[in-house]
Nucleic acid binder design. Structure first.
Lengths: 238, 238
DNA sequence: CTCCAAAGGACTAGTTTCAGTCCATGTCGC
DNA sequence: GCGACATGGACTGAAACTAGTCCTTTGGAG
């Protein structure tokens, strides 16, 4: 880390393409799934719709969907009012122990510490319409009711909901992508009931701070909350 | 903005491809240029090298370079010790008045207000090696010596240098991309000597705070600094 | 003076991706 | 029942993109 090449232009000159369109499409869909943006058991948008939004041809999208289907994430029903459905126990056979490299881990956590507290602060400062308040409340309730199987996904969903309240697309995107990476990290450590309950108290407190417009409080609470997970990760991964 | 669709999965399902590889490659190179990562008058990395880093075939890269050459950004010399050179007065004939939409403007500025103060804070907290301190100092000196023609580029370069000190790739990338967008905004308003001098005082103060390890100070100074430009933009654009 | 090496220039064959078109299925409203 | 129609399924020809190869230029080392 100390041998870094400062001023090196390759920081921006990162790959234009992370893989072929097919691979990136799978990646995106998986991201949306792990982050809870597609509620389990529900129908995904139509192929034509998805392809349009992902900026990819339907052929490519279908290749990706077919792969996810083979991997046990999706179920497809034909005919009118048919569609692609996200299975409840999607991707149970996840590979596990992907073993994320320490630099990557550090990067994810530092960046999260930058954007999430800011998101909470901005959310609290914003003049939130009723629909926004309702959305946050719903995500919180879902999270509080979650069991071990659904917790991680709903946790991600809640944090993204906070970012959504800022109405800042760049920030929402940053939080979403970061959350997908955090989820991959968390998959490496066990889920303990004690931590879970403590986290949920924090989720509740953050929500209240945001809804009451307490920006400084929301920020501070979010920092605390993130520190908890970070410490947990440090503890479990040497 | 109040009619936002909260919880809509399309926030992550943004396009996998923003354009074809050729267009995206131009975009990237242009970004690196406007943000001062390729010093004017100097040689760019070789085509084979650039193509590799951008994850694009040399044919595609060459198309992009040829376009930038036609647009007056680059000069190409053949033979050994030849290469692609960035012209001093690159892209003078920039289209101007691209007229960025207000939502985009707001997004850029809000996001900047999130990531840049955090970058300054983290930079000040970091245990900086001599090379890092030197790099920041160099970028600052270049900026203080800049004239009207070179100011914007070196300004961007300085802000990216601050982010580089954090050694957090996600943050560096975020700041770099954001800066490219900020530059597009600034191109719409005039450069006033008074503002420029005031900005440079702030740049100096930020540098000092970082080098002395004053995290809170660096953060506060950066917030002040950004507020200045934001106010300027608000003033000039209705 | 000669040759080498590092750079840009140009071509080719193969693969991926796309846009468009038509087919197949099956639920809902009549 | 029965037909309309939104959905998934399948195919085709064209365009974009790639990897690989070889050519051309030109400054410096020997």
């Amino acid at each position: 880390m100390t041998t870094e090449n400062f001023g090196h232009p390759y920081a921006v000159l990162r790959p234009v393409r992370l893989g072929n369109a097919f691979e990136e499409t799978i990646e995106r869909l998986l991201q949306a799934i792990t982050v809870g943006l597609f509620p389990p058991g529900q129908k995904l948008p139509s192929e034509r719709d998805l392809a349009g939004h992902l900026g990819v041809s339907r052929a490519t999208l279908r290749e990706a969907l077919s792969e996810l289907q083979k991997a046990g994430y999706l179920e497809v029903r034909r005919g009118r009012y048919g569609g692609t459905y996200l299975l409840q126990n999607a991707g149970v056979a996840s590979d596990g122990a992907a073993h994320i490299d320490p630099e990557e881990r550090w990067d994810v956590l530092v960046f999260r510490g930058v954007i999430e507290p800011a998101a909470a602060e901005l959310a609290a400062e914003a003049d939130l319409p009723a629909s926004a308040r309702q959305h946050l409340q719903t995500c919180l309730t879902d999270l509080l009711e979650a069991d071990h199987a659904t917790y991680r996904t709903r946790d991600a969903r809640f944090h993204i909901a906070v970012a959504e309240l800022t109405s800042c697309p760049s920030l929402i995107t940053a939080v979403t992508e970061n959350r997908a990476r955090v989820s991959a990290l968390l998959d490496e450590i066990p889920l303990l009931t004690a931590n879970l309950e403590h986290s949920n108290q924090q989720h509740l407190a953050i929500t209240e701070a945001i809804l009451r417009g307490d920006a400084a409080g929301a920020r501070a609470l979010m920092i605390d909350h993130l520190e908890g997970t970070a410490a947990l990760l440090r503890g479990f991964l040497h």
